[in-house]
Design a protein around this nucleic acid. Structure first.
Length: 317
DNA sequence: GACCCGTGGTG
DNA sequence: TCACCAAGGGT
């Protein structure tokens, strides 16, 4: 009953998204990697652009890493871009696209979720996915059981999802579970009034307890150095754990009295993982780095913050 | 299992 | 404004 209700709802109510109906496993892989911890609204346009630029695994495999990172700029979690690039190379090296979940997991950047998603959606393998949406749906669906037994453990989510799975239409079923979590069984106030499986739900929307994560605050200062229509950029170290190899504005030295007393050109807030940054941008006159014409700066592998600053600068000018 | 990795939409 | 957090993976 659960399967029929969910699939019927999905068929009728699913959002139209650029990767819906895709049959090319490479396209599906790209969408799944992009969607890792990233909202659908952000991914939609970026997915179209990426597929237009790299329409096949062969094309992506042939591209330079800097080009791939530039295409990924602003999406965050840049390890994903490098891994996807590596996965494309691996597919080309093998000469075929892996067709089963265990084989897919051998590709860099492909874990249990992504392997199951690609295997079920592209190849119809009857394997369930578990992501944040699925966990929330399961939490609410069986809450009465979880009350005594304590929180559902990671392993149990996969077992329960596997039992719920419609083995005839695993790809649609998996997407339907995630769609339900994304648009109906949402974290805040779930829309139980329009839920297709309300009758089968143990909680009927009872809210999970909120948890808050501690965030750090920091101040960062950048120099905006312009010369002949070019901007000075510096590359982050390749061994940095944070945004390695990405390009950004040169930092202002903290003990520079002149910088601190002068008026900033721009002031903005920006969050990176668990830190909230107050960002100050000063006019500068540095020389160390790489001059990039503002006209072409979008072709560079900029950090998201750098893109934001340069975009704001453009709007203000 | 805990911790780290980015960003921008949202209420 | 600001806290929350999203179709996870790697270590």
């Amino acid at each position: 009953m659960f399967r029929q209700l969910l699939l019927a709802w999905y068929e009728k109510s699913q959002r139209k998204l650029p990767w819906r109906g895709a049959t090319d496993p490479y396209h599906i892989l790209v969408s799944e990697i992009m969607l890792q911890q990233t909202r659908v609204a952000v991914v939609e346009e970026r997915y179209r652009q990426f597929i237009a630029q790299f329409p096949s695994a062969e094309k992506l495999a042939r591209a330079k890493e800097s080009t791939v990172l530039a295409a990924w700029s602003g999406l965050g979690y840049y390890r994903r871009a490098r891994a996807l690039h590596g996965a494309a190379k691996e597919v080309v090296r093998r000469g075929f696209f892996p067709r089963t979940a265990p084989e897919l997991m051998e590709l860099p950047g492909v874990g249990r979720y992504t392997a199951a998603a690609v295997a079920s959606i592209a190849f119809g393998e009857p394997v369930a996915v578990v992501d944040g949406n699925v966990k929330r749906v399961i939490d609410r669906l069986i809450s009465h059981k979880a009350a005594d037994a304590g929180p559902v453990e990671e392993k149990q989510y996969w077992e329960i999802a596997g039992q719920l799975l419609d083995r005839q239409s695993p790809g649609d079923f998996n997407q339907a579970m995630m769609e339900l979590g994304a648009v109906v069984c949402v974290p805040g106030n779930p829309l139980c009034a329009v839920c297709p499986v309300l009758e089968l739900c143990a909680s009927r929307g009872a809210l999970p307890q909120p948890e808050k994560a501690a965030r750090k605050k920091a101040i960062v200062q950048y120099s905006l150095c312009l010369k002949n229509g070019s901007v000075l950029l510096q590359q982050r170290p390749q061994n940095s754990s944070l945004m390695p190899g990405m390009w950004e504005l040169p930092a202002c030295s903290e003990n520079n009295q002149k910088r601190q007393t002068s008026q900033p050109l721009m002031k903005l807030m920006h969050s990176i993982t668990t830190t909230d940054y107050s960002v100050l941008v000063f006019a500068g006159n540095l020389r160390k780095g790489h001059w990039v014409p503002l006209k072409n700066v979008e072709r560079s592998a900029l950090t998201g913050l750098t893109r934001k600053i340069l975009r704001k600068l453009k709007e203000g000018a």
